Amino acid sequence: MSAFSDRWTQCMQGSGFPVPTVEDANEALEVLHKVHDAWENSGGEAELTIGALLAAGAVVGVDEGVLATLGEVATVAVGVYISACVACLGSVAFDDLKGLFASNAVPDFVVAQLNSQGVDLGGTVNA
């Protein structure tokens, strides 16, 4: 496991959620993007759970380990889980995210979520 993975896992577990094992911020963003896309393609309703996405086969392109971890939070609303993941990403990989943001590699939903949490990837905290 990488230092990023250790920090992100610790943050997520501190929030009460398991997290898929990834090596860096890029991999974390990729997983979140796939889950977010599946959520949007399924209607993006606030009450939609991760279990509903999994049951519908909507989460594609992720490995079995990610699917197993998502299964552990099947009763959690997708939006809540994504928000927790983005918050932890912002707290443990801010510098990585700033670099990715500068190269337009951060999905819009992540930027919006961080902005709503008072974090500006341009380098300032809005809280």
Rank of each mutant, 00 (worst) to 15 (best):
F109Q: 09
D96N: 04
K34M: 02
P20G: 01
G71P: 12
G122T: 10
T49E: 15
G79Y: 07
L54I: 08
P18Y: 11
C85V: 12
G14D: 03
G122R: 05
A105F: 07
D63N: 14
L53F: 00
D120G: 15
V22M: 05
A52Q: 12
H36Q: 06
A84S: 08
G90T: 01
P20N: 07
V22H: 11
M12V: 00
D108M: 10
I50Y: 14
Y81C: 10
D63G: 10
G51F: 07
G61M: 04
D95V: 00
V76C: 05
V60E: 13
V60P: 02
S103K: 08
P107S: 13
G57I: 02
A46V: 07
P20R: 01
A46M: 10
V119W: 00
D6V: 11
N41V: 10
A28E: 11
S42V: 02
A55Q: 10
V92L: 08
G99V: 06
Q10V: 11
E45Y: 09
L29H: 05
V31F: 01
E30W: 04
V106P: 15
T124N: 15
G118N: 09
A3P: 15
L70S: 05
G79R: 11
A25K: 02
E72S: 00
D37N: 13
G43F: 04
T124V: 11
D6F: 09
A58H: 05
Q10Y: 15
L54R: 09
A74P: 00
A77M: 11
V60M: 05
F109N: 01
V19A: 03
N26D: 15
C11M: 04
S2Q: 00
G61I: 05
D95M: 02
G51A: 08
S103W: 14
P18C: 04
E30N: 04
F101S: 11
A68V: 10
V31L: 06
D108F: 10
G99W: 13
L48C: 07
L100V: 00
